[in-house]
Nucleic acid binder design. Structure first.
Lengths: 146, 146
DNA sequence: TATTGTTATACTCTATAACTATA
DNA sequence: TATAGTTATAGAGTATAACAATA
């Protein structure tokens, strides 16, 4: 019963792809979230700002689809972004809204891109000797499995 | 304003390491969680069962540390596992408990290992041509960054 | 003094079902 | 009939601070 004494346990999950993938993702999320929180931005909000910046007048359902989020979960996030004065909703027809960044929102969205760039730099460096493109391609294959 | 018409938006996050890492992790978690739920096991419970199976009589704090979980978040999980009749707590001294699997718990834990093995197989196949060891080493470096 | 287990609490993201209004 | 936005709700995991008892 060595385990009663020692405090270094064996963790079989350390050999698992899923566990390492999850811990790596959480490590990145932790740093990313800390950087964003300095500007009162949540990761999910940052994702929406990024997509709307790249796709002016997109509607909620389209944004949700391309971020692989549920339509229903967009609602409180959009409300928050509007309340913060970063986003406006303009009717396209009588059931869709075109999402548009305000001047402040555009400024925040650009700041978010810079934070993202700086945040990713350190982690991308840790990929070496595996190449960035190779990793991205591999992660995409994992995303498409099942 | 092509975006009012089209429903295929550009997603700049597709070029990001963090986004792809997260989506890949969630894709694996989705499949893993589905397989486990058939046996009324949650992923976090499966992690604890796995560590206790490999480390009989470990205490909660040690298990939490090796899974990178908070001590406080172990409590309801342990209570659940005890309530399910899969885990017992035996006093080590007057402040620690040795966690021990019951006969049923050991059987569930072994079933979990099989589910994990089958679940990972398909995803590991998707790694090709990148090797498993290479990916694990890379993910570990990411985990250790910041 | 440091650690274990605990309580309480809050936050973030995810998931589902069902509704309405509209295309 | 299918879709957009919404409501309500639940679940899972994570995080912090603080406490009593104990090492």
């Amino acid at each position: 019963m060595a385990n009663i004494m020692s405090n270094q346990l064996e963790n079989p999950l350390e050999q698992r792809l899923g566990f390492n993938l999850r811990r790596a993702s959480l490590a990145m999320m932790l740093d990313y979230g800390e950087q964003l929180s300095k500007h009162d931005v949540r990761p999910a909000e940052a994702s929406i700002l990024t997509v709307v910046l790249a796709n002016p007048d997109a509607n909620q359902a389209d944004v949700a689809r391309c971020l692989e989020m549920k339509r229903a979960n967009m609602v409180p996030l959009i409300i928050q972004l509007v309340a913060k004065g970063w986003l406006e909703r303009h009717p396209i027809d009588r059931r869709r809204f075109a999402l548009r960044l305000t001047a402040t929102g555009r400024s925040v969205a650009k700041k978010v891109q810079m934070i993202m760039e700086n945040h990713e730099r350190d982690f991308i460096a840790a990929l070496d000797p595996v190449g960035f493109d190779e990793i991205i391609a591999t992660l995409r294959r994992l995303r498409g499995t099942k």
